[in-house]
Design a protein around this nucleic acid. Sequence first.
DNA 1: TTAAGTGCAAAATCTTTGCAAATGT
DNA 2: ACATTTGCAAAGATTTTGCACTTAA
Lengths: 148, 148
Amino acid sequence: MIPVKNNYQFEDMLDKHQLKKTAPRLRVLSMMYSKNTATSQPDLENVMHDIDRVTLYRILNVFEEKGIIHKVFDLDGTANYAVCHSDCEANHHHDEHVHFNCTVCKNVYCLNELSLPSITLPAGFKPESFTLYASGLCPKCDKKNSVK
Amino acid sequence: MIPVKNNYQFEDMLDKHQLKKTAPRLRVLSMMYSKNTATSQPDLENVMHDIDRVTLYRILNVFEEKGIIHKVFDLDGTANYAVCHSDCEANHHHDEHVHFNCTVCKNVYCLNELSLPSITLPAGFKPESFTLYASGLCPKCDKKNSVK
DNA sequence: TTAAGTGCAAAATCTTTGCAAATGT
DNA sequence: ACATTTGCAAAGATTTTGCACTTAA
């Protein structure tokens, strides 16, 4: 699990990447670290009405460039962003884990704890990274389903 | 490998799905079966200048609904479509294979021949489908790279 | 003949760009 | 003080919708 972080740690993260510690950036970081699912630009926009749409796009882009978050597309093709493991570097993500996209609530979970089984590709293909996507029912939606 | 098909077979495919055998649909089918990589709407648009942009969107959508093709997003989040295995059904795709996205030519290859190793998800997750995405150099781009 | 499919125009989204004002260091 | 970041307006790009015309069956 990703450990909970406080505001000082978010400020440190921005410092480390030579980013100014602005209110919008700290709020985005805080929101992303408070969830265990990935966040899309619309998710941010729905909550942070006072921050400009464009600013949110720019924050997501710069965080991705710096390796603070990584991008993952959900079943609808919407870009979702999740906080990276400590071993992510700028422009070189180590996001070789499993992404789970719930077909009901649409949330994208990064299952960082699972490692990928190795797989051999046909001759000639030189893979640099792997991601496994699973889709189906997440624990919450599965529970709701069986209760009724 | 997906066997090469002729025009009669494309007409049969449309028949089977209660779709009218129109020229635009036959041309899209023919193009998609002639390649071993997935096709995006822009790909079609670039080649078929005389077919309306909207028609191409609609053809891709109806083919996907009928289970003739399936959608896969590339590294840029662009929707690409690839012809399905015979065991795909309407709205229930069996595309549990490996997708390879080349970082140079951007092509998406469906490696149908590879099956996925089974993987156990954390408790509570009920997966319905899996897809493994790999990205890196495809055989063509790797060859070009090593020649120079 | 008529239901389905296409083309065009226009609307709705989604994302990026340019620039002046505001903010962090 | 100065470079960075933000907000706003506008441009670009992508995808969808409505509707009249055309085509396949």
